[in-house]
Design a protein around this nucleic acid. Structure first.
Lengths: 196, 196
DNA sequence: ACATTTGCCTAACGGTGTTAAACAATTTAA
DNA sequence: TTAAATTGTTTAACACCGTTAGGCAAATGT
């Protein structure tokens, strides 16, 4: 029966619709006002239907988080491919990270719990950006034969700076875009120089 | 009638009790599970009473935020007083900031919207830490005659690094305390050196 | 003593996430 | 083809949330 396939495709589609609806609502009204009933409304169903696709609301957020990390990883890989020089790669990657945070603001919020209580459980895809960055950092530092621990430490230094800057900007601080750009480039450049 | 005074004192006490109860519940179960009815339970009243002291739940969070900034400011002033050298003052102040974030974790969360949707409206006390820090930064950089804008920028560089590191640690990252301390001291030291 | 204010509570409204039960439609079996 | 079983979907409900309105009882003022 080929109709089975069609039904399966349809099921997959509603699943996708639920995720899309959730993300759309979050973009339009913020995560705070996202509700199961609103999602149901948007996909033209009633709320309990959603529970046949996701075990609860948190599972929806978790799946969006996963999608976010996949998307971010793609951006980072693309940025890396723009250069051959590790130091340049690193700079471009963090810039891509920064761009991601603001072009997919709500996704970033749910991924890192900015201004919202995100799902605690972490998926394995979380580690993809980590692996990408530490790989390039290792390349930049290779003349120093750094330990895994040192690389990890350097990564978190980078991450703290960028994530801090992102958070501060999402909460709203009264800094101009130009100033932010300068802080960002200064910080990234500074750390890269310090590890070379 | 001196009984008026007693009643006024009692009213002030319940107000304080509400704030204390809210903070206690947040510490015990997290901000997410804080509810008006739980607060009422803890102070042995029913929920509507709270609205005679605070216009709504957000007002409670806002007042706790205010208390947080006052407390943080006090810590920063104390740290500053430990040294006469501006650069040293700056280091000690950021260390105090770090300590505050973890000894009053929930307060920090509500102040800066980490893992929760904090109240958007900012009180004037928010600017107290800002003024303290920029004052000392200006002192450190005084030989360069920096503009207000530059000082602001340097402040936000500091802030981003520290707040980023704090956020990352509150979300949970798998870094040891020692590593964090090292990153923190490296970062603070690095920035101070870069502005001297 | 009565009238008024005050303190506090119960009940309710509209919302939330989530579950159970009922109904309708479709597929399967006889 | 008709009866049975399965699937899709909805309605109703539960327990909770923030918040408001109304009423009761005690304390206060006159």
């Amino acid at each position: 029966m080929a109709s089975k396939d069609r039904i399966l495709r349809q099921k997959e589609e509603t699943r996708k619709n639920i995720l899309d609806a959730a993300y759309t609502i979050a973009k339009e009204e913020g995560w705070q006002s996202l509700s199961m009933r609103k999602i149901a409304d948007k996909i033209e169903y009633t709320a309990p239907i959603i529970y046949e696709y996701f075990s609860n609301k948190d599972a929806i957020l978790q799946e969006l988080t996963l999608k976010g990390f996949i998307s971010l990883t793609k951006d980072l890989e693309k940025a890396k491919s723009l250069s051959e020089d590790p130091a340049e790669q690193l700079e471009k990657m963090w810039m891509a990270y920064w761009d991601f945070a603001f072009s997919d603001k709500e996704l970033y919020q749910v991924m890192y719990g900015v201004q919202m209580n995100c799902c605690s459980g972490r998926c394995s895809a979380t580690e993809n950006p980590y692996n990408l960055f530490t790989g390039v950092i290792a390349e930049v530092m290779k003349s120093q034969n750094p330990s895994k621990e040192v690389i990890k430490q350097k990564y978190f230094t980078f991450f703290s700076v960028i994530h801090g800057l992102v958070s501060v900007n999402m909460i709203g601080n009264g800094l101009s875009t130009i100033t932010n750009d300068q802080i960002l480039k200064d910080a990234i450049g500074g750390i890269i120089k310090s590890i070379q």
